[in-house]
Design a protein around this nucleic acid. Structure first.
Lengths: 118, 118
DNA sequence: ATTTTGCACAACCAAATGGTTGTCTTTATA
DNA sequence: TATAAAGACAACCATTTGGTTGTGCAAAAT
């Protein structure tokens, strides 16, 4: 968060550093995503076989929510979490792009060598 | 790092939390990987248009090295970094698996409904 | 021979991360 | 109606992260 004064106004803004890459960086969050990929669950259900407090789970849920990876809907006293995994394509896109360039990394050299050979 | 005393011995061990998912979590490291995917570079070259100190770059390089995403080879006083991106498959594998389950998430429900309809 | 470059190593720092416990409100259930 | 369960909210904590500056040294360049 950045706070400063400009033109006699208090300016406060967030540098949003939450993104999909950060969302899947934590192993617990990957487990949560895997669970939810099979269907909606409430927070207690998600935490069932995860050896940590429900509050810790709720924090991970909050992060995933902020990243747009899950959506919530209230059902009585329950918070039902539903996965929203279209965003994951951003990850595969980046990986595939890097991987592709890396696979072609010698071709450029080969072309250069072929050109200088003449 | 975990340090404790057991059976009159000082026990020190590392819980290795470096993995590919962590490696690509930071935007600077993703830029570094993208650069190196096109060919080897030394640390100074990597940091060229990145607005931060060379030491900061070196730290990211260290992390990527520890994750097995790059290999180094000395060339005089230069440390030449070369990408090693096969590990990225672990990421796509996980993403594709989750994405697949998520796409199929209604089929299970549909089968259930079809079965109970009879 | 002197200066510059590349980079390792260390100390330091603020902020973020990933967890904890305690309290409180709301909703279900016995 | 009393109790239990779901989860929000806050305070707290240790460790990690992502950066900084300063020092020193070996290899290159002038």
């Amino acid at each position: 968060m950045v706070v400063f004064i400009f033109d006699n106004h208090l300016v406060v803004y967030m540098i949003e550093r939450r993104d999909v890459f950060q969302a899947i960086a934590d192993p617990t969050r990957r487990i949560i995503i895997s669970k939810l990929s099979q269907g909606p669950l409430n927070i207690t259900q998600i935490g069932e076989d995860l050896d940590m407090s429900k509050q810790a789970i709720a924090k991970h849920i909050k992060i995933l929510k902020e990243c747009g990876m899950i959506v919530m809907n209230q059902k009585g006293r329950e918070q039902v979490c539903e996965a929203q995994l279209t965003q994951l394509d951003e990850v595969t896109d980046w990986v595939i792009q890097s991987r592709k360039l890396w696979n072609q990394r010698f071709e450029k050299l080969n072309r250069f060598l072929a050109a200088t050979k003449k």
